[in-house]
Amino acid sequence: MEEKPVEKNMGWSDQAIVKTTSKYAKPVSKVSIDKQKSKYKHQLGKKLTQTLLPLIAGVIMIMLWEWQVFHSLFNLQTYQLPLPSTIVEAMIDNRAILLSYAGYTMSEAVLGMLFGSVLGFGFALTATAWPKWGKGGLVLIASLNAVPIVALAPIMNLWFGDGMGSRIAIVTIMTMAAMAINAHKGMSVVDPLALDLMHSYAAKKHEVFRYLRVANSLPFVFTALKINTTASMIGAIVGEFFFSSKGLGYMLSNSIKVAKMPLGWSCIVVAAIAGVVFYLVVERMEKIFLKWHSSQRI
């Protein structure tokens, strides 16, 4: 390994040089369609192994699980760790209720995230406009990030009852901090020359915000949103563990309590799928809104 130079030798062969020099008078920046095709093929193959490898590994894992290899390895019973086939069975049997609960939990997560993000963004705006006092407040909001949600759950339950409201509140608090910190960073790391330009236009404070700071904060806002998708799902599900009569989290903790393991697992599977979909939607939105930003260029 030490012998390898930093730049990989991509198998330049003498043949290739001869080919190019003989074919073209000037061997610089010439596009060969044949080459492109083979290159494309090569890349396709690479991509295939890149997705196939983990996929095969995943399938093997599931098969070992199904054949109870893990069970005998770790001395587990099937009622402790249900088989994939029984999980799928439970999913199919309960598909109606799973779907409606998923909708319930998702709406808590999405609503809470919306409130939290708007609030967090508002805090960031305020903190940027009046930096001296705003930053002090921001420190407190940031410390919310480190507060365990499970400690919040009972309190929100006291405040907002055991309906949807308490989970929305939990998610709001959980997502607020990340948005406030990130948006504040985005608004304050503005290029000083761009600020000077605004100054030369005699722009008012709110105009600087409108034309410069908000736009500058957008990439940071999306970073926060992506962090918050996962956080909001966790908030909603964990919030449902204790004081709820609906939702994936409720069903999950309840099924474990009454030893219906396959049903509990199917809740997890649905929650994971919902989480991934939610994340991908936000990522897609980022692509649409941030076309101008360098992080989106290939």
Binding site: L76, Q80, L81, T229, T230, M233, I234, A236, I237, V238, F241, L248, G249, L252, S253, I256, M261, G264, W265, C267, I268, A271, A272, G275, V276, Y279
Partner: peptide, 18 residues
């Protein structure tokens, strides 16, 4: 990466169950 997208704390009751 996928683990970052799924509500991983949701697995807690299951681990506890096992």
């Amino acid at each position: 990466v996928a683990s970052q997208m799924i509500p991983i704390l949701g697995l807690a009751p299951i681990v506890y169950g096992i």
